[in-house]
Structures are given as C-alpha cells and as structure tokens.
C-alpha cells in the first residue's frame, strides 16, 4: 500500500465519521468540534491532491474564522444544553429522508464513477506546475488576469454581507413580539 492511499484512507475515514458525528451529536459545541475535525481532515485531503494553497486556506478560513464565529455564537446564545431534536420528528419522515438521501448518494457516486476513464483536457501535470513556478503562483496569476471580474464581484459580496450584518445587529428587539 503506497503512502498516498494510506493517508487518503485515514483522512477520509476521519472526515466521514466526523460528519456523521456532526449530525448525531446533541450538544452544539460537540457538533462544532466534530466539524473542526472534518475541516482538518479535508485540509489533509487537499494537500494529498497537491492543492497546497487550498489546504492552507481551508485551515485559516474555516477552522480559523468560521468555526470561531460558530463557537462564539453558541457561547453568546448559551445554547449548550443538549436537546434531542432528532427524536422529535416522526419515524416515517426520518426513514423517507434517509432512504431518499441514500438514493441521491448512489446516483451521485454512479455519475462520478462514469468520469473515471476521462481523458484530461488540460496540460498542467504536477511536473509542469512545479516548472511554471508552483501552485500558488499560477492561482494568483489566474485570479488577477482571467478571473479579475469575479474577484471584484467578491468584494461587492463582502461589502453587502458587512452592511447587512450591521443592519441586523443594530435593530432593536421587536416590542410586543411573542417571547415564548
């Protein structure tokens, strides 16, 4: 067994088990920490495929920024008492959704497996990426030449997110709203 396959099986097992824990854990903090585990395993999978920039950004953005936000909100709302909300929905609903998702999963995997013998359309093999200055250099050049319009659109998206978050945070609580 070569190193790549061994590392792949370890990381993918951690990712799948961790994501099952996310949807089964009753306490939100436990789910958040399982999600951190999944994100680290994903960073390992990206690094295995030679996507070093994406692996670094996965750890910086997801585990560094997004998960801190989640844990902070859980702390702010003090929502750590475990609630068994999986028990509330009916058994028929749960069975039908699990079966439907399993069918969707089979369909997606079947579709993906047809792509196995595909002839590559590009020419950027690993050796060529190294000889052209590496992954990070090629991606940065791509952002500021071919995809510069999308890059500018992203700044508008972030501006909109900032404005809407500030507008949400400034609003006073609705007086007379149901305080159930």
């Amino acid at each position: 067994m070569d190193f790549g396959l061994l590392a792949f099986s370890i990381f993918s097992t951690i990712a799948i088990l961790g994501s099952i824990m996310v949807i089964l854990k009753k306490s939100p903090v436990a789910a958040a920490f399982s999600l951190v585990l999944v994100f680290f395993a994903f960073a390992g999978l990206y690094a295995l495929m030679g996507a070093h920039l994406v692996a670094a950004l996965q750890i910086l953005v997801y585990t560094g920024a997004i998960m801190v936000l989640f844990v902070f909100v859980i702390m702010l709302l003090s929502q750590d008492e475990p609630v068994n909300d999986l028990k509330e929905s009916s058994g028929l609903f749960k069975g039908v959704s699990v079966l439907g998702i399993l069918g969707l999963m089979g369909l997606l995997i079947r579709a993906v497996l047809t792509a196995r013998g595909m002839v590559p359309t590009g020419t950027l093999t690993d050796e060529k990426i190294v000889s052209m200055g590496g992954n990070v250099r090629l991606i940065s050049e791509g952002i500021f030449t071919d995809h510069v319009f999308h890059f500018e659109l992203t700044s508008f998206l972030l501006l909109g997110a900032v404005v809407s978050t500030v507008a949400l945070a400034k609003r006073k609580a609705v007086s007379g709203g149901s305080k159930a």
């Binding site: 799948i16 859980i74 196995r116």
Partner: peptide, 29 residues
Amino acid sequence: LEPWMMLVVSMIIFCIGLLGVILRKNLLI
C-alpha cells in the same frame, strides 16, 4: 490514489450534510 476516490468521498460528505439540514431542528447545527 486516484481523483475518483476523492469524488466519492466528496459526494458522501455532501449527502451527510444534506441529511443533517433535513433532519436537525437546531438552526446552528
């Protein structure tokens, strides 16, 4: 190690996430 193995893992994770959105009631989760 081949890319289609990664694709299978990604589809499984996507479906688990979708199942969580359908089944859970807690907005944070």
